[in-house]
Amino acid sequence: MAGSGTAPLRDGREDIVLRVEHLVVEFPTKGGRVQAVSDVSFDVAKGETLGLVGESGCGKSTTGRAVMQLPRPRSGRVALEGTELTSLSPEELREMRPKMQLIFQDPISSLNPRRVVVDIVAEPLAIWGIEENRRFRVNHLLETVGLDTDTAARRPHQLSGGQCQRVSIARALVMDPQVLICDEPVSALDVSVQAQILNLLEDMKARYGLTMVFISHDLSVVKNISDRVAVMYLGKLCEIAPSEALYRRPAHPYTNALLASVPHPDASRVRGKSVPLTGELPSALDPPSGCRFRTRCPRAEARCADEEPTMRELQPGQFVACHFPVTPGRPLVTTPTGALGAPA
């Protein structure tokens, strides 16, 4: 993954709502520059859900926020329905804000603790001075996301995690956005509640024709909700493909390793297929040269340290940034890996 390149961009299509090109985000710190997102390109078509997966710290949230211009990326371009956001003035950007909404992982702390639910949901309308049908819109949305009038009168700390997430969704939808960016929206929830919220997001998407970016570290959840999935590692994209294809024949060694780590009640089945990842994520302060995955990659060769792989289309719609991608039927491992837990 360590891969760059704009090959996955589908510029021939008319229905691209969000287009991200060469996105770079860096954070200056005491220890140096954290290279959080390094040259990431993808697009999302109208009504499509793009899943973004990867290990903690790989840059998923930073990507999501940079798309929203929170903060503005260091370089790269982000176009929303053809409007280039990175070159807008602060005032112009403010005008665009309602079109893109973000839903966070931690439902309780992302809501204003002092206000009651109806007011939290109505707040964006108040900020934008929209009076028309305000009550109706708010009540209608609360009902749609499954909150009754009793709950609407409560404050966030009086709600469960699942109810808070319903409030966040209602609030995000009240301005009629085009794009919804969900950053781990169900990670803090119990499985039973997680299913309720995932179903709700699917319903809302169908009902309001939403385009979604869905960030999660849970591969099963991402497969369930996404049309296409992008796999991220240490600030770069490794692979991007339609969900079915990505899970059926993962081509990037990192995608293979991620899938091999997914717990399964019948452990022997998954284990046989592939090798779970060993070692730890390298520091984003000083990422490896060439392919950023090479320090943990079972297929790495000398070329991987010298030359960064760029995205190329391996199968129709399946893009991979790897010099030696995995081909179906061939074993993943070409070299013996180190002992469990030791860096490869």
Partner: peptide, 24 residues
């Protein structure tokens, strides 16, 4: 049974409807 069915199964196709347990 409900716990098992409410988690997305990685073998199922995308957009498979999940069987949520109502209530808390």
């Amino acid at each position: 049974d409900a716990l098992l069915r409410s988690v997305p199964n990685i073998e199922d196709p995308p957009h498979t409807r999940l069987l949520a347990i109502g209530g808390r």
